[in-house]
Nucleic acid binder design. Structure first.
Length: 490
RNA sequence: GGCCCCAUCGUCUAACGGUUAGGACCUCGCCCUUUCACGGCGGUAAUAGGGGUUCAAAUCCCCUUGGGGUCACCA
């Protein structure tokens, strides 16, 4: 027996990677890397009714996007494959036969109708819990053989012994106990021959030598069934760690109804993978200090299951936004450039060919004041095109009686400019301010308005430099013609 | 409803018997500043309630309340 850490992320391919799934995958990944173990991806596709075209690919793409590369899994055999449960049917069958032989599991031929009636009857009697009545467990050998031969639809159920205590120790929750009276004879093999989650999961975790089962809390109440199975099979129990749930703002389990839940939604909205991962990691885990900015490698160094919280955590987008801005600011301009170009390609300016120096100068000017990479476009459209309107509030507030005259002086000075250096912009601005003996804002505000159409943005010298001499001249001439008229109307 | 899990500012969390209950997001104020931001400083804001145990309880135990999960031939 070796004690290599092997963990798995075992999603069912329902179409996309849920952010809750991302957190589960992340903790598995961090735990594996922290302990020099293996992170395995296993696809739990045992429900053929829920088959979704392309879901596995999307799942893998999302995992790849956030840099959670698996060590073993689809197209990456580590000797424990296949990693699709739908390709392991014979394995589940082989092990179930042994269980049936030992009466630890049994065939059940009850029809869905009978099951439905049974449940309804139990509800009518206000029984504390609806459970299968074990009818088929009491079938004689002959009856079973006869029904089997006749090809009746059948399932295989777990034979749960009455009134026993099933206990296990959970790394995040501690000691947990259940009484088997509250546990149903779970179906292990469905009538279509496919295993249920419970059966496939236990068999695979054992065969794939999974050392730690790290999954969402929604699995806690079915864990005793799994424990019973491990015991029946004589297999060693893995360590369990049930993670707190991710919650909607109203504290219910995070759902699509109340916002975006797919990783790709966040990607599309322009979140950085680093920010999403950082954020989701902190939903249920912290190292014990005040650090909140994390890159994947730093998390690997510090992660431990012992410091995972028990209580569910509300997925709070505002903090995610803050982290996104933080991660943008932590990246170099050069790192940001390709991300910026991606957004540009999706924008109305896609067909324009901007050179890197221009884009880099926008990044440098705007980096401190954005939340998203796409803000490099939409928060400062004046870098890409001349303003078509002027912010009325700013016109009202900043356009004074002498503004037109000052702008004219500025225009003349601009026309004389020899370079497009920041220093020269600064110089001519200051000369006009001194000559007219006015405050700096008196000139700067009208200039900003004329050139950008708005009252906010980066520093004036940078602004002018990025827009450039020729364009500044055009914009000021236009503003001179339009703003005074606008001012009159207000 | 049965079973199980959980419970510190609005939100994410720290404090693993002894702290003026700390940090972050949000929000508000001030500073920086040509604007908006960034940044800095400061404010508002929490141990769900009740019993125990203890010299001492947010922390341990019990009850109540509240929230959540789960009770499928879905995972």
């Amino acid at each position: 027996m070796n004690n290599e850490v092997r963990v798995r992320f075992a999603p069912s391919p329902t179409g996309y990677l849920h952010v809750g799934g991302l957190r589960t995958a992340l903790y598995n990944f961090l735990f594996a890397k922290r302990n020099n173990g293996k992170f395995i991806l296993r696809i739990e596709d045992t429900d053929r009714n829920r088959y979704v075209e392309g879901a596995v690919e999307k799942l893998i793409d999302s995992l790849k996007w956030v840099d959670l590369e698996y060590d073993e899994g689809p197209n990456k055999d580590g000797g424990f494959g296949p990693y699709f449960q739908s390709e392991r049917l014979d394995i589940y069958q082989k092990h179930i036969d042994k269980l049936i032989e030992e009466k630890k599991a049994y065939y059940c031929f009850c029809t869905p109708e009978r099951l439905k009636n049974l449940r309804e009857e139990q509800q009518r009697q206000k029984l504390p819990q609806a459970k299968y009545d074990k009818k088929c467990f009491h079938l004689s050998e002959e009856e079973i053989k006869q029904k089997l031969d006749s090809g009746l639809p059948k399932v295989v159920r777990l034979n749960v012994q009455p009134n026993q205590t099933v206990a296990f120790d959970d790394i995040v929750r501690g000691h947990v106990e259940f009484n088997t009276d509250n546990i149903d004879d779970q179906i292990l093999i469905k009538s279509d021959g496919f295993p249920t989650y419970h059966w496939a999961n236990v068999v695979d975790d054992h065969l794939m030598k999974i050392s730690h089962v790290i999954r969402g809390e929604e699995w806690l109440s079915s864990t005793p069934k799994h424990v019973i199975l491990y015991n029946y099979l004589g297999w060693e129990l893995p360590k369990f760690a049930h993670l707190p749930l991710l919650l909607n703002p109203d504290k219910s389990k995070l759902s699509k109804r109340q916002g975006d839940v797919a990783v790709e939604d966040y990607k599309d909205k322009g979140y950085l993978k680093e920010a999403l991962v950082n954020f989701v990691a902190l939903l249920g885990w912290n190292y014990g200090d005040d650090k909140e900015f994390y890159l994947l490698d730093e998390m690997i160094e510090k992660f431990s299951l012992e410091r995972v919280n028990k209580a569910g955590a509300v997925f709070n987008v505002e903090k995610l936004n803050w982290l996104n801005g933080l991660h943008i600011r932590e990246k170099s301009d050069e790192e940001l450039l390709p991300l910026f170009k991606e957004e540009l390609a999706k924008s109305e300016y896609a067909t324009n060919n901007y050179d890197d120096d221009f884009l880099l100068s926008i990044i440098s000017a705007m980096k401190e004041r954005v939340t998203f990479v796409k803000d490099f476009i939409y928060n400062c459209k004046y870098f890409y095109e001349a303003p078509t309107t002027y912010d009325e509030k700013i016109v009202k507030k900043r356009w004074k009686d002498d503004s037109a005259d000052l702008l004219k002086q500025f225009l003349e000075a601009v026309k004389q400019m020899k370079t497009n250096d920041k220093e020269e912009w600064e110089k001519i601005l200051h000369e006009i301010v001194e000559k007219n003996e006015i405050g700096f804002g008196r000139l700067i505000h009208p200039v900003r308005l004329a050139v950008s159409g708005v009252g906010v943005g980066p520093g004036a010298y940078e602004l002018l430099q990025i827009i450039g001499k020729e364009e500044v001249i055009k914009r000021i001439e236009k503003a001179l013609a339009e703003i005074p008229k606008l001012k009159e109307q207000l």
